[in-house]
C-alpha cells in the first residue's frame, strides 16, 4: 500500500484497535498484522511517535501493568475524545474511499469520440 495512504490511516487503525481493548505497542503491531492478513506491518519507529502524539492530544492515555514474567508494559487506553476522533476519522475515510472507488470504477475512454459514441450510441447520434 502507498506510504502516504498508510500514514493517513495509521492513527485511525490504532484507535480502532484500542476501541476493543487496552493494548501495548508490540501487541498492537501483531494484532494489526493478524487482522489485515499481514498487509499492514507497522515499524516501531512509526508506531511509537504516533502513539505518543495521540497521547499528547488526549485521544489515548497510558498506564503501566506488570506481566507475570515481571516485565512492566505500557498499555494504551482510548479516551472519550479518542472515540470521537475515531468516529470522525472513519467518516473521513469513508468519504475518501468512496471517492477513490468512484474514480476507479468509472470507465476510461481513449478519446472524446469514444465517450460520445458510448453515450450517444452511434455516429449518427453525434452528428445529429
Amino acid at each position: 500500500m502507498d506510504k502516504k495512504m498508510m500514514a493517513m490511516g495509521t492513527s485511525m487503525l490504532i484507535l480502532k484497535l484500542l476501541e476493543t481493548k487496552d493494548m501495548y505497542g508490540y501487541q498492537m503491531i501483531k494484532e494489526l498484522e493478524e487482522r489485515s492478513e499481514n498487509i499492514f506491518s507497522l515499524k516501531e519507529g512509526t508506531l511509537y511517535p504516533i502513539l505518543h502524539n495521540l497521547e499528547k492530544n488526549g485521544d489515548i492515555e497510558s498506564f503501566e501493568k506488570t506481566s507475570e514474567t515481571g516485565r512492566i508494559r505500557k498499555y494504551y487506553h482510548i479516551t472519550k475524545s479518542g472515540s470521537r476522533a475515531l468516529a470522525q476519522k472513519q467518516e473521513e475515510w469513508g468519504t475518501f474511499r468512496s471517492a477513490v472507488e468512484k474514480v476507479l470504477k468509472a470507465p476510461v475512454y481513449e478519446s472524446v469520440f469514444d465517450a460520445l459514441i458510448e453515450k450517444g450510441g452511434s455516429m449518427y447520434g453525434i452528428l445529429r
Binding site: 497521547e55 497510558s62 498506564f63 503501566e64 506488570t66
Partner: peptide, 12 residues
C-alpha cells in the same frame, strides 16, 4: 524517572 502517566502499576 517513571513513565509519563500517573496510574499506578498494576499486576495482570
Amino acid at each position: 524517572t517513571t513513565w509519563k502517566t500517573g496510574r499506578k502499576a498494576q499486576k495482570v
